[in-house]
Nucleic acid binder design. Structure first.
Length: 379
RNA sequence: GUGGGUAUGGUGAAGCGGUUAACACGGCGGAUUGUGGCUCCGUUACGCGCAGGUUCAAAUCCUGUUACCCACC
């Protein structure tokens, strides 16, 4: 029995959307879900209480960053990540694989693992399936992710195949190294933009009996239709009784389409990152709060939003905070954006429950301003 | 009052006779998808205090004028 299990509650009549529950050592959570990102053991600018208020469920932390600073040994001494950062709901740690490949200037990939230089002090570091699992066990999140290579886009077939096969071997080693009974381990499907490699990756990982599965290597620069196609090809080969987590994806349009293709979990830095750059998310699209048109706009970001920010502050005020570089602005927009996405996921869950997800999806695209991203199969 | 100096966009300033007046900040847009509050991209002076003059050519040279700064009475 895995420490984290997925309970399938309901499937949509058309499309592959599904309503489920994730049972974890820190509670049961509703899917489809959006998971706020708290890379360095904090969702930037927000307190745990503020996250609870917006009904945040599972949040992410990052192995690469915490491994380099403050070190997993210290977190272990503190009593684990939950205690260390005082967040008592679900938690997931990324394996560090992605960062090694995206942040690492000099890195050397071998069968054994990856040698790389720390972005903090330039020191030489080594991460492998065994090291990543050990670090993640010390961090102690409910869900740990297998150490994988996120293949850049574009990559040719031969490299993708070689890398995907290695990621599969690394997955096996992660499973073998994993010992903590109160923590689940998720495998990660790779395969780049090649359907047959996606299938190969999914099938071989399926045999290993992970608690759930991440879908990696998507949203790395490929066109949206390609991503949706790959996602479609990937979920077809996955176990219906286990959670599917589309890694690093989390704009509203991608979430709707991801859910429609059978995804249960999403995470993304997008809402919190763009918040810090002055962009608010709405059901229509982005609202760049620092634009001059909002200088004297005393309405809230969204009239219909119930978040703390929208209940109390105007666009003009938030714009002023950004212009004056006051940190409260970062917080207000982070609160709004996270609230928006968590609420968005809730609306999706309700729609699936009430058998109207197809309608929800259609309505979403009718309101969405980026019409060019509209999928073709939306009758 | 006398002598000297400086006047270039929102700001700090380059340019010292000859391509479309550098560069930085700011402003205005945009990007941002397993997080560096980072970063990246585009745009932003039909004009060089004002008025004349010299020259094929003037922000650059000359004259006058105005403002400010420094020194001395």
């Amino acid at each position: 029995m895995h420490a984290v299990t997925y309970e399938l509650i309901k499937e949509a009549k058309q499309g592959k959307a599904r309503r489920g529950r994730l049972h974890t050592p820190h509670g049961t959570f509703e899917t489809p879900m959006f998971m706020p990102v708290g890379t360095q053991a904090t969702v930037k600018t927000l307190s745990p209480e503020e996250l609870y208020d917006m009904e945040s469920q599972v949040i992410l932390a990052n192995t690469y960053h915490l491994f380099l600073r403050p070190g997993s040994g210290l977190v272990k001494k503190a009593g684990g990540l939950h205690k260390f950062m005082n967040y008592n709901r679900g938690m997931l740690t990324d394996s560090g694989g992605f960062q090694v490949f995206s942040l690492g200037e000099m890195r050397k990939i071998t069968e054994e693992g990856v040698m790389f230089r720390s972005h903090i002090d330039g020191s030489k570091q080594f991460l492998s399936p065994e090291v990543s699992v050990r670090v993640q066990e010390e961090l102690g999140a409910d869900i740990a992710m297998a150490f994988d290579e996120c293949i850049p886009y574009p990559s040719d077939f031969n490299y993708t195949k070689k890398s995907t096969e290695r990621t599969t071997r690394w997955a096996e080693r992660c499973l073998k190294a994993h010992t903590r009974p109160d923590q689940a381990l998720f495998g990660i499907v790779q395969g780049g933009m090649f359907p047959e490699l996606r299938k190969m990756s999914a099938e071989s990982l399926l045999e290993m009996d992970f608690a759930g599965y991440g879908i990696g290597g998507l949203s790395v620069g490929e066109p949206k239709p390609v991503m949706y196609d790959m996602l479609d090809q990937t979920t077809d080969w996955m176990d219906k009784q286990k959670a599917r987590y589309l890694m690093g994806v989390g704009t509203p349009d991608c979430i709707v389409e991801g859910v429609n293709l059978g995804v249960d979990m999403f995470d993304c830095v997008f809402p919190t990152r763009v918040a810090r750059n002055g962009t608010a998310m709405t059901a229509r699209g982005r609202l760049v709060i620092r634009n001059a048109v909002y200088a004297e706009d005393f309405r809230p970001i969204d009239e219909n939003c119930s978040c703390y920010t929208c209940r109390n502050f105007s666009r003009a005020y938030i714009r002023h905070l950004f212009k004056a570089e006051e940190t409260f602005g970062l917080r207000l927009l982070s609160i709004h954006n996270l609230h928006f996405l968590l609420d968005f996921a809730k609306k999706i869950r309700d729609a699936i429950e009430q058998d109207r997800f197809a309608e929800f999806r259609k309505e979403f695209w009718d309101n969405w301003e980026e019409k060019d991203k509209r999928p073709e199969n939306l009758n």
